[in-house]
Write a protein that binds this DNA or RNA. Structure first.
Lengths: 228, 228
DNA sequence: ACGATGCTTCGGTTACGATCGAAGTATGAA
DNA sequence: TTCATACTTCGATCGTAACCGAAGCATCGT
Protein backbone atom coordinates (compact mmCIF):
# COMPACT_ATOMS: atom_id res chain seq x y z
CA UNK A 1 0.00 0.00 0.00
CA UNK A 2 2.98 2.30 0.35
CA UNK A 3 4.10 2.16 -3.21
CA UNK A 4 4.71 4.84 -5.80
CA UNK A 5 4.95 8.61 -5.59
CA UNK A 6 3.31 10.62 -2.83
CA UNK A 7 0.72 12.98 -4.25
CA UNK A 8 -0.39 14.01 -0.77
CA UNK A 9 2.68 16.17 -0.24
CA UNK A 10 2.22 18.36 -3.29
CA UNK A 11 -1.51 18.27 -2.79
CA UNK A 12 -1.06 19.68 0.69
CA UNK A 13 1.37 22.29 -0.61
CA UNK A 14 -1.16 23.52 -3.15
CA UNK A 15 -4.03 22.98 -0.74
CA UNK A 16 -3.40 25.98 1.47
CA UNK A 17 -5.30 29.06 0.22
CA UNK A 18 -2.41 31.45 0.77
CA UNK A 19 0.02 29.20 -1.08
CA UNK A 20 -2.48 28.54 -3.86
CA UNK A 21 -2.91 32.27 -4.40
CA UNK A 22 0.83 32.72 -4.58
CA UNK A 23 1.19 29.94 -7.12
CA UNK A 24 -1.66 31.32 -9.19
CA UNK A 25 -0.01 34.73 -9.18
CA UNK A 26 3.29 33.21 -10.26
CA UNK A 27 1.50 31.54 -13.16
CA UNK A 28 1.54 35.01 -14.61
CA UNK A 29 5.12 34.19 -15.54
CA UNK A 30 6.98 37.04 -13.91
CA UNK A 31 9.17 36.73 -10.88
CA UNK A 32 7.71 38.23 -7.70
CA UNK A 33 9.28 39.23 -4.41
CA UNK A 34 8.32 37.79 -1.05
CA UNK A 35 6.59 41.04 -0.13
CA UNK A 36 4.49 41.02 -3.28
CA UNK A 37 3.56 37.40 -2.73
CA UNK A 38 2.59 38.11 0.85
CA UNK A 39 0.15 40.68 -0.50
CA UNK A 40 -1.50 38.33 -3.00
CA UNK A 41 -1.72 35.69 -0.28
CA UNK A 42 -3.34 38.11 2.11
CA UNK A 43 -0.86 37.34 4.89
CA UNK A 44 2.03 39.00 6.68
CA UNK A 45 5.58 38.81 5.46
CA UNK A 46 6.66 36.38 8.16
CA UNK A 47 3.97 33.88 7.28
CA UNK A 48 4.68 34.25 3.58
CA UNK A 49 8.32 33.52 4.24
CA UNK A 50 7.58 30.16 5.81
CA UNK A 51 5.14 29.30 3.04
CA UNK A 52 7.69 30.15 0.37
CA UNK A 53 10.33 28.06 2.10
CA UNK A 54 7.98 25.09 2.09
CA UNK A 55 7.13 25.54 -1.56
CA UNK A 56 10.79 25.74 -2.42
CA UNK A 57 11.86 22.63 -0.57
CA UNK A 58 8.84 20.93 -2.13
CA UNK A 59 10.28 21.68 -5.55
CA UNK A 60 7.54 23.99 -6.78
CA UNK A 61 9.49 27.23 -6.59
CA UNK A 62 12.96 28.56 -7.19
CA UNK A 63 14.36 31.78 -5.80
CA UNK A 64 16.94 34.15 -7.08
CA UNK A 65 18.62 36.73 -4.87
CA UNK A 66 18.99 40.15 -6.39
CA UNK A 67 20.30 42.78 -4.07
CA UNK A 68 18.13 42.73 -1.01
CA UNK A 69 15.19 41.33 -2.90
CA UNK A 70 14.34 37.70 -3.34
CA UNK A 71 12.56 36.90 -6.56
CA UNK A 72 10.47 33.76 -6.69
CA UNK A 73 9.34 31.96 -9.82
CA UNK A 74 7.69 28.65 -10.57
CA UNK A 75 10.35 25.95 -10.68
CA UNK A 76 9.87 25.07 -14.35
CA UNK A 77 7.35 24.66 -17.13
CA UNK A 78 6.16 21.35 -15.68
CA UNK A 79 5.08 23.17 -12.54
CA UNK A 80 3.25 25.79 -14.58
CA UNK A 81 1.46 23.07 -16.53
CA UNK A 82 0.44 21.33 -13.32
CA UNK A 83 -1.00 24.53 -11.85
CA UNK A 84 -2.83 25.32 -15.06
CA UNK A 85 -4.24 21.82 -15.39
CA UNK A 86 -5.46 21.99 -11.80
CA UNK A 87 -7.12 25.30 -12.61
CA UNK A 88 -8.86 23.67 -15.55
CA UNK A 89 -10.00 20.81 -13.37
CA UNK A 90 -11.16 23.11 -10.59
CA UNK A 91 -13.12 25.19 -13.08
CA UNK A 92 -14.77 22.08 -14.52
CA UNK A 93 -15.96 21.13 -11.02
CA UNK A 94 -17.22 24.61 -10.27
CA UNK A 95 -14.64 25.44 -7.62
CA UNK A 96 -14.39 29.19 -8.03
CA UNK A 97 -12.46 31.66 -5.99
CA UNK A 98 -15.35 33.78 -4.75
CA UNK A 99 -17.93 35.16 -7.12
CA UNK A 100 -16.67 36.65 -10.37
CA UNK A 101 -15.36 40.14 -9.72
CA UNK A 102 -15.28 43.19 -11.97
CA UNK A 103 -11.84 42.31 -13.35
CA UNK A 104 -12.96 38.87 -14.41
CA UNK A 105 -14.00 39.79 -18.00
CA UNK A 106 -10.57 41.19 -18.81
CA UNK A 107 -8.98 37.97 -17.59
CA UNK A 108 -11.29 35.85 -19.68
CA UNK A 109 -10.54 37.92 -22.75
CA UNK A 110 -6.74 37.76 -22.66
CA UNK A 111 -4.26 36.80 -20.00
CA UNK A 112 -0.81 35.39 -19.52
CA UNK A 113 -0.42 31.70 -18.85
CA UNK A 114 3.19 31.27 -17.71
CA UNK A 115 4.72 32.80 -20.85
CA UNK A 116 2.08 32.54 -23.55
CA UNK A 117 -1.35 33.95 -24.37
CA UNK A 118 -4.50 32.44 -22.86
CA UNK A 119 -8.16 33.32 -22.63
CA UNK A 120 -10.57 34.06 -25.47
CA UNK A 121 -7.82 35.58 -27.59
CA UNK A 122 -5.41 32.72 -26.95
CA UNK A 123 -8.00 30.16 -27.99
CA UNK A 124 -8.96 32.22 -31.02
CA UNK A 125 -5.35 32.46 -32.12
CA UNK A 126 -4.87 28.70 -32.06
CA UNK A 127 -8.21 28.08 -33.75
CA UNK A 128 -7.28 30.46 -36.53
CA UNK A 129 -3.83 28.94 -37.00
CA UNK A 130 -5.38 25.49 -37.28
CA UNK A 131 -8.18 26.60 -39.59
CA UNK A 132 -5.75 28.32 -41.95
CA UNK A 133 -3.59 25.22 -42.13
CA UNK A 134 -0.60 26.76 -40.39
CA UNK A 135 -0.81 24.25 -37.57
CA UNK A 136 -1.85 20.62 -37.77
CA UNK A 137 -3.95 19.36 -34.89
CA UNK A 138 -3.65 15.60 -34.71
CA UNK A 139 -5.26 14.06 -31.71
CA UNK A 140 -4.02 15.99 -28.73
CA UNK A 141 -0.83 17.16 -30.42
CA UNK A 142 0.10 20.17 -32.51
CA UNK A 143 2.72 20.65 -35.21
CA UNK A 144 3.64 23.47 -37.54
CA UNK A 145 3.15 22.81 -41.26
CA UNK A 146 5.65 24.03 -43.88
CA UNK A 147 2.99 26.50 -44.97
CA UNK A 148 2.61 27.68 -41.42
CA UNK A 149 6.35 28.01 -41.02
CA UNK A 150 6.59 30.49 -43.87
CA UNK A 151 3.54 32.35 -42.66
CA UNK A 152 4.98 32.71 -39.17
CA UNK A 153 8.23 33.87 -40.76
CA UNK A 154 6.25 36.78 -42.23
CA UNK A 155 5.01 37.73 -38.77
CA UNK A 156 8.64 37.76 -37.72
CA UNK A 157 9.05 34.44 -35.97
CA UNK A 158 12.02 32.22 -36.72
CA UNK A 159 10.45 28.78 -36.41
CA UNK A 160 13.56 26.84 -37.36
CA UNK A 161 15.46 28.69 -34.69
CA UNK A 162 12.87 27.73 -32.09
CA UNK A 163 13.00 24.12 -33.22
CA UNK A 164 16.61 23.83 -32.17
CA UNK A 165 15.75 24.55 -28.55
CA UNK A 166 15.17 21.76 -26.09
CA UNK A 167 11.70 22.92 -25.26
CA UNK A 168 8.84 21.58 -27.42
CA UNK A 169 7.73 23.97 -30.16
CA UNK A 170 3.99 23.47 -29.79
CA UNK A 171 2.00 22.33 -26.83
CA UNK A 172 -1.70 22.53 -26.28
CA UNK A 173 -2.72 23.91 -22.91
CA UNK A 174 -6.27 23.58 -21.66
CA UNK A 175 -7.78 26.99 -21.03
CA UNK A 176 -9.82 27.12 -17.83
CA UNK A 177 -12.00 30.02 -18.90
CA UNK A 178 -12.77 28.76 -22.40
CA UNK A 179 -12.47 25.04 -21.66
CA UNK A 180 -10.66 24.66 -24.96
CA UNK A 181 -7.01 24.50 -25.93
CA UNK A 182 -4.69 27.39 -26.53
CA UNK A 183 -1.11 27.39 -27.81
CA UNK A 184 1.76 26.90 -25.36
CA UNK A 185 5.36 25.86 -25.96
CA UNK A 186 8.18 27.98 -27.35
CA UNK A 187 6.04 29.09 -30.29
CA UNK A 188 3.32 30.32 -27.95
CA UNK A 189 5.94 32.25 -26.03
CA UNK A 190 7.45 33.73 -29.19
CA UNK A 191 4.08 34.91 -30.46
CA UNK A 192 3.19 36.67 -27.23
CA UNK A 193 6.63 38.26 -27.14
CA UNK A 194 6.19 39.81 -30.57
CA UNK A 195 2.82 41.23 -29.54
CA UNK A 196 4.56 42.96 -26.65
CA UNK A 197 7.53 44.03 -28.78
CA UNK A 198 5.31 45.65 -31.37
CA UNK A 199 3.28 47.46 -28.74
CA UNK A 200 0.11 45.63 -29.67
CA UNK A 201 -0.42 44.61 -26.08
CA UNK A 202 1.02 45.07 -22.61
CA UNK A 203 0.91 43.32 -19.25
CA UNK A 204 -0.95 44.90 -16.37
CA UNK A 205 0.57 45.73 -13.03
CA UNK A 206 -0.84 43.32 -10.48
CA UNK A 207 -2.78 40.90 -12.61
CA UNK A 208 -2.35 38.22 -15.23
CA UNK A 209 -4.57 40.05 -17.70
CA UNK A 210 -3.20 41.35 -20.99
CA UNK A 211 -4.45 44.65 -22.39
CA UNK A 212 -4.48 45.21 -26.14
CA UNK A 213 -4.15 48.69 -27.62
CA UNK A 214 -6.87 49.68 -30.12
CA UNK A 215 -4.50 49.33 -33.08
CA UNK A 216 -2.96 46.18 -31.65
CA UNK A 217 -6.34 44.61 -31.22
CA UNK A 218 -7.28 45.39 -34.80
CA UNK A 219 -4.01 43.95 -36.11
CA UNK A 220 -4.42 40.85 -33.99
CA UNK A 221 -8.00 40.22 -35.07
CA UNK A 222 -7.20 40.62 -38.76
CA UNK A 223 -4.11 38.44 -38.44
CA UNK A 224 -6.09 35.65 -36.75
CA UNK A 225 -9.56 35.80 -38.29
CA UNK A 226 -12.43 33.70 -37.04
CA UNK A 227 -13.59 31.12 -39.56
CA UNK A 228 -17.28 30.55 -40.18
CA UNK B 1 -6.74 38.90 -6.44
CA UNK B 2 -9.78 36.64 -6.11
CA UNK B 3 -10.16 35.76 -9.72
CA UNK B 4 -10.30 32.44 -11.54
CA UNK B 5 -10.72 28.89 -10.31
CA UNK B 6 -9.76 27.79 -6.82
CA UNK B 7 -7.00 25.21 -6.91
CA UNK B 8 -6.70 25.24 -3.13
CA UNK B 9 -9.89 23.21 -2.67
CA UNK B 10 -8.85 20.26 -4.81
CA UNK B 11 -5.30 20.62 -3.56
CA UNK B 12 -6.55 20.24 -0.01
CA UNK B 13 -8.72 17.29 -1.00
CA UNK B 14 -5.74 15.48 -2.47
CA UNK B 15 -3.44 16.78 0.24
CA UNK B 16 -4.61 14.49 3.01
CA UNK B 17 -2.60 11.24 3.15
CA UNK B 18 -5.61 9.01 3.71
CA UNK B 19 -7.52 10.57 0.82
CA UNK B 20 -4.45 10.49 -1.42
CA UNK B 21 -4.04 6.78 -0.79
CA UNK B 22 -7.67 6.17 -1.64
CA UNK B 23 -7.38 8.12 -4.87
CA UNK B 24 -4.20 6.29 -5.80
CA UNK B 25 -5.92 2.98 -5.17
CA UNK B 26 -8.87 4.04 -7.32
CA UNK B 27 -6.44 4.89 -10.13
CA UNK B 28 -6.29 1.13 -10.52
CA UNK B 29 -9.57 1.56 -12.38
CA UNK B 30 -11.81 -0.80 -10.46
CA UNK B 31 -14.60 0.29 -8.15
CA UNK B 32 -13.90 -0.19 -4.44
CA UNK B 33 -16.18 -0.26 -1.42
CA UNK B 34 -15.91 2.11 1.51
CA UNK B 35 -14.53 -0.69 3.68
CA UNK B 36 -11.79 -1.50 1.18
CA UNK B 37 -10.90 2.15 0.85
CA UNK B 38 -10.74 2.52 4.61
CA UNK B 39 -8.16 -0.27 4.61
CA UNK B 40 -5.92 1.32 1.95
CA UNK B 41 -6.21 4.63 3.78
CA UNK B 42 -5.24 3.04 7.05
CA UNK B 43 -8.21 4.51 8.90
CA UNK B 44 -11.49 3.37 10.42
CA UNK B 45 -14.68 3.11 8.47
CA UNK B 46 -16.24 6.18 10.05
CA UNK B 47 -13.33 8.37 9.11
CA UNK B 48 -13.24 6.93 5.61
CA UNK B 49 -16.92 7.72 5.23
CA UNK B 50 -16.42 11.41 5.90
CA UNK B 51 -13.42 11.50 3.57
CA UNK B 52 -15.37 9.85 0.79
CA UNK B 53 -18.23 12.27 1.26
CA UNK B 54 -15.84 15.19 0.89
CA UNK B 55 -14.24 13.73 -2.21
CA UNK B 56 -17.65 13.17 -3.74
CA UNK B 57 -18.97 16.66 -3.13
CA UNK B 58 -15.64 17.94 -4.42
CA UNK B 59 -16.33 16.19 -7.71
CA UNK B 60 -13.48 13.72 -7.61
CA UNK B 61 -15.53 10.60 -6.93
CA UNK B 62 -18.83 9.04 -7.84
CA UNK B 63 -20.59 6.31 -5.93
CA UNK B 64 -22.93 3.58 -6.99
CA UNK B 65 -25.11 1.68 -4.55
CA UNK B 66 -25.26 -2.03 -5.06
CA UNK B 67 -27.09 -3.97 -2.39
CA UNK B 68 -25.65 -2.95 0.92
CA UNK B 69 -22.32 -2.03 -0.64
CA UNK B 70 -21.28 1.33 -1.91
CA UNK B 71 -18.83 1.24 -4.77
CA UNK B 72 -16.67 4.28 -5.36
CA UNK B 73 -14.82 5.16 -8.56
CA UNK B 74 -12.95 8.18 -9.84
CA UNK B 75 -15.44 10.64 -11.28
CA UNK B 76 -14.16 10.47 -14.86
CA UNK B 77 -11.08 10.18 -17.04
CA UNK B 78 -10.13 13.80 -16.37
CA UNK B 79 -9.81 12.97 -12.69
CA UNK B 80 -7.67 9.94 -13.47
CA UNK B 81 -5.41 12.06 -15.67
CA UNK B 82 -5.05 14.66 -12.93
CA UNK B 83 -4.05 12.05 -10.35
CA UNK B 84 -1.61 10.45 -12.75
CA UNK B 85 -0.04 13.76 -13.73
CA UNK B 86 0.37 14.64 -10.07
CA UNK B 87 2.06 11.29 -9.53
CA UNK B 88 4.45 12.07 -12.37
CA UNK B 89 5.17 15.46 -10.90
CA UNK B 90 5.64 14.09 -7.39
CA UNK B 91 8.02 11.44 -8.71
CA UNK B 92 10.04 14.07 -10.58
CA UNK B 93 10.48 16.01 -7.33
CA UNK B 94 11.43 12.92 -5.38
CA UNK B 95 8.31 12.80 -3.21
CA UNK B 96 8.04 9.10 -2.59
CA UNK B 97 5.62 7.23 -0.40
CA UNK B 98 8.12 5.65 1.96
CA UNK B 99 11.14 3.80 0.63
CA UNK B 100 10.55 1.40 -2.23
CA UNK B 101 9.03 -1.82 -0.93
CA UNK B 102 9.32 -5.38 -2.20
CA UNK B 103 6.28 -5.05 -4.46
CA UNK B 104 7.72 -2.00 -6.17
CA UNK B 105 9.49 -3.87 -9.05
CA UNK B 106 6.25 -5.55 -10.17
CA UNK B 107 4.56 -2.15 -10.24
CA UNK B 108 7.32 -0.63 -12.30
CA UNK B 109 7.18 -3.48 -14.77
CA UNK B 110 3.46 -3.39 -15.56
CA UNK B 111 0.50 -1.81 -13.85
CA UNK B 112 -2.94 -0.43 -14.56
CA UNK B 113 -3.34 3.29 -15.04
CA UNK B 114 -7.12 3.87 -14.85
CA UNK B 115 -7.96 1.50 -17.70
CA UNK B 116 -4.79 1.11 -19.74
CA UNK B 117 -1.31 -0.36 -19.38
CA UNK B 118 1.49 1.59 -17.70
CA UNK B 119 4.99 0.91 -16.42
CA UNK B 120 7.91 -0.49 -18.38
CA UNK B 121 5.66 -2.64 -20.54
CA UNK B 122 3.26 0.22 -21.25
CA UNK B 123 6.09 2.48 -22.35
CA UNK B 124 7.63 -0.31 -24.43
CA UNK B 125 4.33 -0.93 -26.19
CA UNK B 126 3.96 2.68 -27.24
CA UNK B 127 7.61 2.91 -28.27
CA UNK B 128 7.24 -0.16 -30.43
CA UNK B 129 4.03 1.07 -32.03
CA UNK B 130 5.69 4.36 -32.90
CA UNK B 131 8.91 2.74 -34.17
CA UNK B 132 6.99 0.37 -36.43
CA UNK B 133 5.02 3.25 -37.91
CA UNK B 134 1.67 2.14 -36.51
CA UNK B 135 1.34 5.34 -34.52
CA UNK B 136 2.51 8.80 -35.48
CA UNK B 137 3.98 10.85 -32.65
CA UNK B 138 3.79 14.49 -33.62
CA UNK B 139 4.76 16.86 -30.88
CA UNK B 140 2.83 15.77 -27.82
CA UNK B 141 0.05 14.11 -29.78
CA UNK B 142 -0.49 10.62 -31.09
CA UNK B 143 -2.49 9.33 -34.06
CA UNK B 144 -2.97 5.96 -35.67
CA UNK B 145 -1.66 5.61 -39.23
CA UNK B 146 -3.58 3.64 -41.91
CA UNK B 147 -0.83 1.05 -41.68
CA UNK B 148 -1.27 0.91 -37.92
CA UNK B 149 -5.01 0.60 -38.28
CA UNK B 150 -4.72 -2.59 -40.34
CA UNK B 151 -2.07 -3.96 -38.03
CA UNK B 152 -4.25 -3.39 -34.97
CA UNK B 153 -7.10 -5.02 -36.85
CA UNK B 154 -4.94 -8.18 -37.02
CA UNK B 155 -4.52 -8.11 -33.25
CA UNK B 156 -8.26 -7.96 -33.05
CA UNK B 157 -8.94 -4.31 -32.39
CA UNK B 158 -11.60 -2.46 -34.34
CA UNK B 159 -10.02 0.98 -34.65
CA UNK B 160 -12.78 2.49 -36.77
CA UNK B 161 -15.28 1.40 -34.16
CA UNK B 162 -13.29 3.09 -31.42
CA UNK B 163 -13.06 6.26 -33.48
CA UNK B 164 -16.79 6.74 -33.38
CA UNK B 165 -16.78 7.02 -29.60
CA UNK B 166 -16.66 10.40 -27.92
CA UNK B 167 -13.47 9.61 -26.07
CA UNK B 168 -10.19 10.41 -27.84
CA UNK B 169 -8.59 7.40 -29.51
CA UNK B 170 -5.01 8.08 -28.49
CA UNK B 171 -3.67 10.02 -25.58
CA UNK B 172 -0.19 10.11 -24.21
CA UNK B 173 0.02 9.73 -20.45
CA UNK B 174 3.23 10.49 -18.60
CA UNK B 175 4.47 7.43 -16.77
CA UNK B 176 5.76 8.25 -13.28
CA UNK B 177 8.05 5.23 -13.00
CA UNK B 178 9.58 5.49 -16.47
CA UNK B 179 9.25 9.26 -16.84
CA UNK B 180 8.20 8.68 -20.42
CA UNK B 181 4.87 8.47 -22.20
CA UNK B 182 2.62 5.45 -22.46
CA UNK B 183 -0.58 5.01 -24.44
CA UNK B 184 -3.91 6.06 -22.91
CA UNK B 185 -7.26 6.79 -24.54
CA UNK B 186 -9.78 4.29 -25.87
CA UNK B 187 -7.08 2.47 -27.85
CA UNK B 188 -4.97 2.01 -24.74
CA UNK B 189 -7.99 0.59 -22.98
CA UNK B 190 -8.84 -1.73 -25.87
CA UNK B 191 -5.31 -3.12 -26.00
CA UNK B 192 -5.21 -3.91 -22.31
CA UNK B 193 -8.65 -5.51 -22.54
CA UNK B 194 -7.50 -7.92 -25.22
CA UNK B 195 -4.50 -8.90 -23.12
CA UNK B 196 -6.88 -9.82 -20.33
CA UNK B 197 -9.35 -11.52 -22.67
CA UNK B 198 -6.67 -13.72 -24.17
CA UNK B 199 -5.33 -14.67 -20.78
CA UNK B 200 -1.97 -13.07 -21.46
CA UNK B 201 -2.20 -11.10 -18.24
CA UNK B 202 -4.36 -10.62 -15.17
CA UNK B 203 -4.94 -8.05 -12.49
CA UNK B 204 -3.79 -8.70 -8.95
CA UNK B 205 -6.03 -8.64 -5.93
CA UNK B 206 -5.10 -5.59 -3.88
CA UNK B 207 -2.65 -3.78 -6.11
CA UNK B 208 -2.41 -1.94 -9.39
CA UNK B 209 0.21 -4.30 -10.74
CA UNK B 210 -0.47 -6.51 -13.76
CA UNK B 211 0.94 -10.02 -13.91
CA UNK B 212 1.78 -11.59 -17.27
CA UNK B 213 1.65 -15.34 -17.78
CA UNK B 214 4.81 -16.89 -19.26
CA UNK B 215 3.15 -17.43 -22.68
CA UNK B 216 1.43 -14.06 -22.51
CA UNK B 217 4.70 -12.36 -21.79
CA UNK B 218 6.37 -14.05 -24.74
CA UNK B 219 3.51 -13.10 -27.07
CA UNK B 220 3.56 -9.54 -25.82
CA UNK B 221 7.29 -9.12 -26.24
CA UNK B 222 7.31 -10.53 -29.76
CA UNK B 223 4.29 -8.43 -30.72
CA UNK B 224 5.94 -5.25 -29.48
CA UNK B 225 9.66 -5.70 -30.13
CA UNK B 226 12.26 -3.26 -28.90
CA UNK B 227 14.05 -1.41 -31.72
CA UNK B 228 17.80 -0.96 -31.67
C1' DA C 1 29.07 54.44 10.26
C1' DC C 2 24.16 54.69 10.46
C1' DG C 3 19.51 54.02 9.42
C1' DA C 4 16.17 51.96 6.23
C1' DT C 5 14.45 48.16 3.66
C1' DG C 6 13.69 43.17 2.61
C1' DC C 7 13.48 39.00 4.47
C1' DT C 8 14.14 35.04 7.93
C1' DT C 9 13.83 32.78 12.44
C1' DC C 10 11.81 32.11 17.00
C1' DG C 11 8.02 31.58 20.33
C1' DG C 12 3.46 31.28 21.58
C1' DT C 13 -1.44 31.31 20.34
C1' DT C 14 -5.27 29.69 17.91
C1' DA C 15 -8.25 27.36 14.84
C1' DC C 16 -9.31 23.86 11.82
C1' DG C 17 -9.81 19.25 10.52
C1' DA C 18 -8.56 14.40 11.06
C1' DT C 19 -9.66 10.89 14.05
C1' DC C 20 -12.41 7.51 16.60
C1' DG C 21 -16.28 5.73 19.90
C1' DA C 22 -20.96 5.37 20.01
C1' DA C 23 -25.33 5.52 18.16
C1' DG C 24 -28.38 5.51 14.10
C1' DT C 25 -30.03 3.87 9.27
C1' DA C 26 -30.38 0.67 5.47
C1' DT C 27 -30.02 -3.75 3.18
C1' DG C 28 -29.60 -8.67 3.13
C1' DA C 29 -29.83 -13.31 5.31
C1' DA C 30 -31.92 -16.79 8.31
C1' DT D 1 -38.96 -11.17 12.94
C1' DT D 2 -34.38 -11.12 14.19
C1' DC D 3 -29.63 -10.80 13.58
C1' DA D 4 -25.64 -9.41 10.83
C1' DT D 5 -23.33 -6.56 7.62
C1' DA D 6 -22.30 -2.08 5.34
C1' DC D 7 -22.27 2.38 5.97
C1' DT D 8 -23.49 7.20 7.88
C1' DT D 9 -24.02 10.74 11.43
C1' DC D 10 -23.04 12.73 15.94
C1' DG D 11 -20.04 14.32 19.55
C1' DA D 12 -15.79 14.95 21.59
C1' DT D 13 -10.75 14.79 21.54
C1' DC D 14 -6.42 15.88 19.89
C1' DG D 15 -2.49 17.28 16.84
C1' DT D 16 -0.83 19.88 13.47
C1' DA D 17 -0.03 23.83 10.96
C1' DA D 18 -1.26 28.52 9.90
C1' DC D 19 -0.66 32.78 11.89
C1' DC D 20 1.43 37.00 13.88
C1' DG D 21 4.61 39.87 17.15
C1' DA D 22 9.16 40.47 18.12
C1' DA D 23 13.82 39.95 17.31
C1' DG D 24 17.72 38.84 14.25
C1' DC D 25 20.44 39.08 9.61
C1' DA D 26 21.69 40.89 5.35
C1' DT D 27 21.96 44.45 1.86
C1' DC D 28 21.52 49.03 0.12
C1' DG D 29 21.73 54.13 0.35
C1' DT D 30 23.78 58.15 2.25
Amino acid sequence: MKEGPDIAQIGALIGDPARANMLAALSGGRALTATELAAVGGITLQTASTHLAKLETGGLLTQRKQGRHRYFTLADEATALLIESMMGFAASRGHLRHRPGPKEPALRKARICYDHLAGDYGVRMLDSLVASGAIDAIGEGLSVTPKGESRLQCIGIDVSGLKSSRRPLCRSCLDWSERRAHLAGSLGKALLSTFFDRGWARRTAGSRSVIFSPEGEQKFLSLFPLEA
